[in-house]
Amino acid sequence: MVDAPTPTSPLAGQTHLPRANGPVGVTIAERVFAGMLVLRGNAIDPAFIAAAHGALGFDLPLIANTATSAGSNGALWLGPDEWLVVTAPDDAMARAVGLKVALVGLHAAVTDIGDSRTIIRLSGPKARDVLAKGCPLDLHPRTFGPGRAAQSLIARAGVIIHQLDDIPSYDIYILASFAAYLWNWLTDAGLEYGIVPGAKL
């Protein structure tokens, strides 16, 4: 009998940060083990949209570069027929089953990708300045505010960025094998803004 494997964060042990040398401008923390599903389907098929809404309890974002959410669940627009559904830890399997049942007979796909990425949350009045150092997106509030989400690059690493609020806070979805690199890059980029570890998520 093999013991059930214990999940390990790709950022386990990446908590060392130099003490801020002045006011704290930004915090960094890992949102660990969130469930993630890739949902694909025809956005202009009302049956698909209705079935997804029924299974999720909220609408899929149909406008490019936006996200919708309800409580700890959310959906991010990834492409014209592709979304990332984010769930609480341990809820991904139930969500996937719910979606698959609701989408029977439709041209759609649900794939659990939760273990491929982790989430780094950057929050604070200087969070935008830290991102702007390595991200080609226009992060100005007039084009990228709360509820916006986009796939892009930070320091050449592929990421999904989701702005949560006006603080501003960002959830940055990063592939597990790039997570330590991006964490180190962000903490280095945040040094001048007084970066410290954030509250556990």
């Binding site: 490019a64 570069n65 492409g79 014209p80 080609p136 997106l137 796939q151 892009s152 690059l153």
Partner: peptide, 11 residues
């Protein structure tokens, strides 16, 4: 055509 204006490095 889907995402709007982006930097060349993404393409």
């Amino acid at each position: 055509p889907w995402c709007g204006p982006r930097a060349e490095i993404e393409f």
